[in-house]
Computed example of a mutant assay.
Amino acid sequence: MKIVKIVSVIVLGWIASSCKAQEKQQITTSKTYSEISVKEGGNWEGRKYIGGAFKNVQKLKLAPEHTDHSFDIRYEGPGWESNKIGYRLYLDWRNAIDIFGKKTEEIILSKIGQDGFDSYHEMSDWGADILKAGKGIGIGSIDRYLNNERLHFYEVDSTIAKVENNAYNSSVTVNYYGWKTASDKIDFTSELTIKPNQRYTRHTIHPSKAIEGICTGIVKQKNTQLLKNESKNKKWAYIATYGSQSLVPDQLGMAIFYEVSTIEYLVDAEFDHLLIFKPRISPTSFYFLGAWEQEKGGIKSQTEFVEYLNGKLADLNKKNKL
Rank of each mutant, 00 (worst) to 15 (best):
M1I: 00
K2V: 01
I6D: 13
W14N: 01
K20T: 12
I27Q: 09
S34Q: 10
E35T: 02
S37E: 07
G46T: 10
R47D: 15
S70E: 07
F71M: 14
R74L: 06
R74A: 06
Y75P: 11
G77S: 09
D98C: 06
I108H: 04
S110Y: 15
G116E: 05
D118K: 12
D118I: 03
S119N: 14
E122C: 09
M123Q: 12
M123H: 10
D125L: 00
D125C: 00
D129F: 06
L131K: 06
L131C: 02
G136K: 09
G138E: 04
G138D: 08
R150A: 08
I160N: 05
I160Y: 03
A161H: 14
K162M: 13
V163H: 05
V163S: 07
N165R: 07
S170A: 15
S171D: 10
S171M: 10
V172F: 02
Y177G: 05
G178Q: 08
G178T: 04
K180M: 03
A182G: 14
S183Y: 14
D184H: 14
K185Y: 01
I186V: 11
D187W: 09
S190W: 01
L192W: 08
T193M: 13
T193P: 11
N197K: 10
Q198C: 08
Q198A: 06
T201I: 14
I205W: 04
I205G: 04
H206D: 13
P207F: 01
A210W: 03
T224Q: 15
Q225I: 02
K228F: 10
N229E: 09
Y238E: 10
Q245I: 08
P249F: 01
G253L: 02
G253A: 08
I256P: 10
Y258A: 11
I263L: 11
E270T: 13
H273T: 02
H273D: 13
L275Q: 13
I276H: 13
R280M: 15
S282Y: 13
L289I: 00
L289P: 05
E293I: 02
E293S: 14
E295Y: 09
G298Q: 04
K300A: 04
E307A: 14
L309W: 02
N310I: 00
K312N: 15
K318E: 15
